[in-house]
Nucleic acid binder design. Structure first.
Lengths: 111, 111
DNA sequence: TCGATTTGACACCTTTTGGTATCACGTTAA
DNA sequence: TTAACGTGATACCAAAAGGTGTCAAATCGA
């Protein structure tokens, strides 16, 4: 049914794509900038960006011959909510997202 | 680094495996019981269960010749938290997980 | 005891995925 | 104007993923 959620979870399944998302959390990047940090070609990074875009996790802003990629809020919420549904099945302490964010050390989630 | 998180996200990338998780939310199932609901062989379902187990999303209780599969809380929290990290990058209203659960209609997240 | 049941483990096949190499196209700057 | 730059797109390849069929082993029930 929800192909958007499917694409979103598929996008998160690859460690390179999760790494890209964390780098975009520090601000928008072009493909060339992202490629510097990976041991693969620009074409491979471009493919990962396409998958991330299909999942609604990033957007692209075009400026001249450059394309700046940035995080897109739209794709994240459905994925987080899908997982959060299962929290009701274990009676543990329920996490408040505000607490997660307030206690965050700004370095990003551990990869 | 965190192969556990990697396996978890990989497990969620397949729609059959997400369907299995939602069925297990209704209680533990054997492989044979799960297979009734899918258009694939028991061996295929078994493979999906192995992936879910590798991701720490399910556990198995053995009783005689039967093996009952059930949800495992351990694997879910790291995945939810990983995604929740990004919530700080859009200033929208932060969702309180308690609200999500209280408003849930008990039918499970839309697939 | 012995057949039916439930499962795990392989070998095997096809499709998808992650990667490279290469070329074409628009943009920039000298 | 023209060469360098940044990118999209495509063909191609190896490996991983999702599936089937089959067989052996353990357990249950008559």
């Amino acid at each position: 049914m929800d192909i958007y959620t499917q694409n979103g979870f598929r996008a998160l399944a690859d460690p390179t794509r999760r790494d890209i998302l964390q780098r975009l959390a520090g601000g928008e990047h072009t493909i060339a900038q992202l490629t510097e940090h990976f041991d693969m070609t620009r074409a491979a990074v471009k493919k990962h960006l396409t998958v991330l875009s299909d999942g609604g996790l990033i957007t692209t802003r075009v400026s001249g011959r450059e394309r700046f990629n940035a995080l897109d809020p739209n794709g994240f919420a459905p994925l987080r909510d899908w997982i959060s549904f299962f929290d009701q099945f274990w009676g543990n302490q329920l996490t408040n997202l505000n607490d997660i964010i307030e206690n965050n050390d700004q370095k990003g989630p551990l990869q």
